[in-house]
Simulated scan of single mutants.
Amino acid sequence: MSLDSPRTASRPERLTVHEARLRLEHERAARLTQLRALDEAGPDAEEQVMSAQKDTIGRVLKEIDAAFDRVTDGSYGVCRGCERPIPVERLEILPYTRFCVPCQRHA
């Protein structure tokens, strides 16, 4: 949605495959950059903090890869809990999510 769009313009209910792939690629690149930065921090960085951060980033990368699989099989953007469409606004913020907000709270 461009900044020039009128505020009354309705948002699409789902991201296109192209939009989903772009958002997921951006997320993957950001996490890989974080991993490289942690690797470059060297032995002076606190080992426990770095290990926890690497584990978290690795987990997110797996979620991103799983989201790419959902794009491929056509189930991207469908909540794994209630099977309804995940709102576009949520997918814009967290493009690899598997759940809508209410189902995420219960997951």
Rank of each mutant, 00 (worst) to 15 (best):
M1D: 14
S2I: 00
L3E: 14
L3H: 07
D4T: 05
D4E: 13
S5L: 07
S5T: 09
A9Q: 15
S10D: 14
S10I: 03
R14H: 13
R14C: 04
R14W: 07
T16C: 04
A20Q: 11
R21Q: 12
E25Q: 10
E27A: 08
A29S: 12
A29I: 02
A30M: 04
A30Q: 12
R31A: 06
T33C: 03
Q34G: 09
Q34E: 15
L35R: 08
R36L: 02
R36K: 08
D39H: 11
E40F: 02
G42V: 02
G42N: 11
P43A: 08
E46S: 03
E46C: 02
E47D: 15
E47M: 05
Q48P: 04
V49E: 15
V49I: 09
S51Y: 08
A52C: 04
K54I: 03
K54D: 10
T56Q: 14
T56E: 15
G58N: 15
G58Y: 09
R59A: 08
V60C: 06
V60D: 15
L61F: 01
K62P: 04
D65L: 01
A66W: 09
D69N: 09
D69F: 01
R70E: 13
R70D: 13
S75C: 02
S75R: 09
G77N: 11
V78Y: 14
V78R: 13
C79K: 09
G81E: 12
C82P: 10
E83Y: 03
P85N: 10
I86Y: 00
I86D: 04
I86T: 10
P87E: 12
E89V: 00
E89N: 04
R90P: 10
E92A: 01
E92L: 05
L94K: 14
P95S: 07
T97H: 11
T97E: 13
T97W: 11
R98F: 02
F99K: 12
F99L: 14
P102I: 01
P102E: 13
Q104I: 01
Q104Y: 08
R105Y: 06
H106R: 13
H106N: 09
A107R: 15
